[in-house]
Design a protein around this nucleic acid. Structure first.
Length: 276
DNA sequence: AAGCAGGACAACCGCAACAAG
DNA sequence: GCTTGTTGCGGTTGTCCTGCT
């Protein structure tokens, strides 16, 4: 069995978001918190699919996003993490507060690749090898070839290629909407969902212990989805820590383990075991 | 000034992973 | 353990912008 389409494509807008759509999305999330993306467009009065809303929020509208150019430190960290993790953009983004995976991915493809090539490094393997610079014939990027090919096409062929869904399934039976506990401070909630908080002075603060797991104190009732996100986050954090540790990167691993531990203090023993 | 090439980045897509029932 | 719905990820594409000829 496959999955149902995420939205009724015939009744959804595509392309760039308008200011009004942004405002509607922001207002809705400020009021109801993140989550339940599938039902969000209808609830917020948006003619967008849930995925589109999620992407717009995560990559552009989230209040805690860091805007502006990447610093040299961020550059180096991205290169280092990419060497360890490959194209695991979400994991890399997890180490760069305020940056999104999409942003980092774009940045990698547009800036860092070139930077590494200029240094005589292979962007695919970063600093591990230094092959000779590519010949003029091979410097033509695939992207450039694509663009050239596209420019040779007729206008109607320039329309975005519609990928036909592999499976068509009947619409799912409507289920009652999941009750989402509104986030009182959406920005902080979003940051906490990624396991981090940030003070106005910009200093990164480690988040409170994971709520809702294994009998921890529960000052606030956490919605199931948030709890789930935290569990996913924890798995990723542990996974990244293991990679860093395996790569022998003590500095990054030590920073990382602190975050692992505070994201979910219950797992302290488990993580400690890895570090031993 | 006009047209073109390429850079930059927002947005889309399919799919895998995951959780809930 | 299986089915089904949701979420998030990574690759790809579209479009705007800028600089060059």
């Amino acid at each position: 069995m496959g999955r149902s389409p995420c939205c009724e494509k015939a009744h959804t807008n595509k392309g760039a978001w308008t200011k009004e759509e942004d405002q509607r999305l922001i207002a809705h999330i400020n009021q109801h918190g993140e989550g339940c993306w599938r039902s969000l467009p209808k609830a917020a009065g948006l003619l967008r699919c849930g995925k589109s809303c999620r992407l717009r929020w995560i990559n552009y509208l989230r209040p805690d996003l860091k805007r502006g150019n990447f610093t040299d430190e961020e550059d180096e960290l991205i290169i280092k993490l990419h060497e360890l993790l490959g194209n695991k953009w979400s994991l890399i983004a997890g180490r760069l507060p305020g940056r999104t995976d999409n942003e980092i991915k774009n940045y990698w493809n547009t800036h860092i690749k070139r930077k590494l090539l200029a240094r005589g490094l292979d962007p695919l393997r970063t600093a591990r090898s230094m092959p000779p610079p590519p010949s003029p014939a091979t410097t033509t990027s695939r992207r450039r070839l694509q663009l050239l090919a596209r420019r040779n096409k007729r206008p109607q062929q320039l329309q975005r290629r519609r990928r036909v869904p592999r499976r068509h399934r009947p619409q799912p039976v409507h289920k009652p909407a999941v009750v989402v506990v509104p986030a009182v401070f959406p920005a902080a909630a979003a940051a906490r969902s990624r396991g981090e908080t940030r003070r106005s002075d910009g200093e990164l603060h480690l988040p409170p212990p994971l709520l809702g797991d294994e009998g921890e104190d529960m000052p606030v009732l956490e919605p199931p989805r948030a709890a789930r996100r935290r569990r996913v986050q924890l798995r990723r954090l542990v996974g990244l820590f293991l990679l860093l540790a395996a790569a022998g990167d003590g500095e990054l691993a030590s920073v990382h383990i602190r975050q692992c531990i505070v994201v979910n203090s219950v797992k302290h023993r488990e993580i400690q075991r890895f570090s031993d």
